[in-house]
Amino acid sequence: MQRVKALYENEFDQGLAPAVHFENVGVRYGMGPEVLRDLTFSIEPRSFQFLTGPSGAGKTTLLRLILLSVRPTRGLVSLFGQDVSKISKDGLTALRRRMGVVFQDFRLLDHLTTYENVALPLRVQGKEEASYRAEVVELLRWVGLGDRMHVLPPVLSGGEKQRAAIARALIVRPDLLLADEPTGNVDPSLARRLLRLFIELNRLGTSVVIATHDFSLMDQLNVRRLVLGDGHLHIDA
């Protein structure tokens, strides 16, 4: 055990520890049935994978487990080599700063403009506005929101909100990107474009997990697929 721990720490230092590691993880909401059972898998650094399964299979729940917004009812979850069961609040903040998330329901802040929403992860780290302005603007142009920067989210279309949410997740160039149905509201050509953005990010060193049930999207890439069904996970390599 001691040796395993030492090995983990060593790997972590070299950036080789898995970004995510689950061991026999099970989770239930309240007193309900177990939504996910006996999950054991890893997400390697710099890897790219899809997470799929029918609606209600637990894709969002699995992503929330990784985000630590849902705690496992049993099993072991570790992120970047750190066991999360005894993590401090500061440690939690540090972990979240290494992750970017695209929520299925976007979760943009309605009182901030598109630009401010995308800049939010940098702003909460206390960075000066001048230091990231150009970067944010460039990313907004890349996702096609260059002329929607000063607009509040309620007047954006579904696809525009989705792109803003994606930009917000990418802006910090996270070590791990979790995207929940990131192409659910856009046309196929824009979906391809966004996929290219994720691939580019992956090339720069980010592990990417894309939850989707869009087979035409998954068929564009020959990568690992984590398939959820009946609460269990199986992996198509």
Binding site: T113, R133, R141, I171, R173, E200
Partner: peptide, 27 residues
């Protein structure tokens, strides 16, 4: 038109930035 590269590490300076992006809206 698609920019040649989405690389966010190097902000290109070809297009001028909007004058005032800052609204300083409370979080």
């Amino acid at each position: 038109s698609e920019p040649s590269s989405p690389n966010p590490r190097q902000p290109p300076a070809e297009r001028p930035l909007p004058a005032s992006l800052r609204r300083n809206a409370p979080l």
